[in-house]
Structure formats: structure tokens, C-alpha cells
Design a protein around this nucleic acid. Structure first.
Lengths: 146, 146
DNA sequence: AAAAATGTAACTAATATTGTTACTGTATGG
DNA sequence: CCATACAGTAACAATATTAGTTACATTTTT
């Protein structure tokens, strides 16, 4: 259980909400779609809410709904909300101060890691949540036909 | 101890070898530079050797050396050697077969994940090991001057 | 007041990463 | 020929993260 699937789950959750505009969707409903526990969903909802992608409402008829139009949300927004960890980690040990290479390694890697992270981010910015929903709608209707 | 630093360590190792062309470098020497245990180094050496980036020699005067010129090796080659895991993980649970969205989610995410991975890879291909070594050499000489 | 929702804390199980010890096999040098 | 220094690898411990679960407080509607 190491590679983190929160981005996939968050995109799933956001897509489900985008397909029910104006409706409040419960964590229990979302958990059934994800085949997991409602608390797992609520943890992700909480992160998405924190960055303003959705709003929740407590109480008997409560639930969550998108805070913006699906066309105004990119997958990068979702990625950022749930995946704050750095892509790459540096050597966790202190540099060996008697080794010049060891002392300079991190500062040489920094811009390389930053560029890679930036390339990844730009790629995710190209897809909007509305694009995902469109693809899902197409696939779902064609699988229903089959 | 979760985010994986093998790419940073492997780049460090490859750089150290690139700065001693023709020499066999021991895992003990590399471990001192990384401030870690020789076995940690040998595990990474083993992965780099598996993909043909370096060659090792056993015995009293043994060690490791690059199998190609530093200008013929990109950081992507190193990344691939040590970081085989996927960048993103899918929801580990089975899809809920009574939910069309749930059933189609993975196939919609697949090309998105692939594009992001590709963008990352292309970014890493832009830097050659020789570029890293040049930057290190500059930084090391200027820090020595200071 | 009951019911159904959010929000969150605390715990478990599984897994990954790093470091360590201990050992085998190999090649060199005296 | 044999001690030495290396690679290679298995086994284990410490730590951290992820996902799932239980439990409970709070909020809102009916």
C-alpha cells in the first residue's frame, strides 16, 4: 500500500459530483462508487474543500457539491489538493562535508526536480474536469448500448 | 521514510563515477560520499548495472565504472533504472459494477496518467549526466575558492 | 426527538524505504 | 597460497505512509 491513489480517487469523486450539478452528493454514495469506506471519501473531500474546489453542507440532507464549474477546474487543481508531497526526495542523510560533490549535489538537483515537477503540472493543466466528464459520459453510454 | 530518494542517490552515484573516468569506484567510497551504508549503494549499483549504465568488477581491486560516456546518459535513463513504480496509482478497489462511472474511470484516467508520465520523462531526458557533472564541477570549484 | 449527514480522532494492517548485520563468492597482491 | 578488499545478496529492524475501520461529536432536516 505505498503508491498513493488519492489523485485517482479525488478525480473520481470530482467527476461524480460534476455529473450531478446542483445536487448534494453524500460521502456514502461516493464511497459506494469507489467501493471503499465513507471516511476515506470524507478525508479526500476535506482536502478538496480546503482548496475551494467544493463545498459541503452538514445535516440530514447534506453532502458535497462543486464550488466551480467543471470547465473551470483542471486535473492539476485536483492533484495539488490531494498530493502535496514532492515528486522526488533528496538523499535523507546530511552531506559529507569533506566531499565537495556531496555538498553541491542537492543544489544541482533542485532545478532539475523543479523542471520535472513543472512539466508534470503543465501536463495535468491541459485536462479540465469537464473533459473527463465528457469522456466518461461517452464511454458509459456506449457500454450501456453494448 | 516514504518518499523515495533512490533517483537522487543514483544520480549522485553516477555523477561521482563520471568524475573519475576509467577508475573503478568502490561502494565504500560512494557510501561515504552519500553518508550511508555500502549495501544501500550496492543495491542501487545493482539496478544501474541491470539496465547497462555501469559495469562492476569483483575482487580486491574491484569497483564500478560507467558503461557509457556521461554525455550519452540522460537523467531519464537513471530515473527509469531505479524508479520503476508508476507515478500515480489507481483506486486499489474493484470497480462497483452497478456504477457506470466507477467501471469507466480507470480507462479514462489511463491516457491522462500516461501523458503526465511522458511529460515527466521528456523533462528528464533534457539533462545529460555530463550536464550534471559540469554544474557540479563549477559549483565545487567556486565553493573551494570561497 | 429521531434520522442522516459531515467532521475527525484513534487505531490496525499492509507495504515501502532505508539502514544494518552477516554471509558467500571473486580477484588481487604479497 | 592465503589474507585482503571488494561485489552480491539475504534477512532483519526501524520508520513512515496509505487505506481501511470504528467510534463519536456536531449539524440539520423531518
Amino acid at each position: 500500500m505505498a503508491a498513493n491513489s488519492r489523485f485517482a480517487m479525488a478525480t473520481h469523486i470530482m467527476s461524480a459530483m460534476a455529473m450531478k450539478p446542483g445536487e448534494l452528493v453524500s460521502s456514502t454514495f461516493l464511497a459506494e462508487s469507489l467501493n471503499t469506506n465513507p471516511v476515506v471519501v470524507r478525508r479526500i473531500l476535506s482536502e478538496l474543500q480546503r482548496v475551494g474546489l467544493l463545498a459541503t453542507q452538514a445535516g440530514r440532507t447534506g453532502g458535497a457539491e462543486l464550488a466551480k464549474k467543471a470547465s473551470a477546474i483542471t486535473l492539476y487543481d485536483i492533484y495539488q489538493a490531494v498530493d502535496e508531497g514532492e515528486l522526488f526526495a533528496y538523499n535523507p542523510n546530511d552531506p559529507n562535508r569533506s566531499c565537495a560533490l556531496s555538498c553541491e549535489m542537492k543544489s544541482v538537483l533542485e532545478p532539475i526536480f523543479a523542471s520535472a515537477q513543472e512539466a508534470l503540472s503543465e501536463s495535468l493543466k491541459k485536462t479540465r474536469l469537464s473533459d473527463v466528464v465528457e469522456k466518461l459520459a461517452k464511454r458509459c453510454s456506449s457500454s450501456r448500448r453494448a
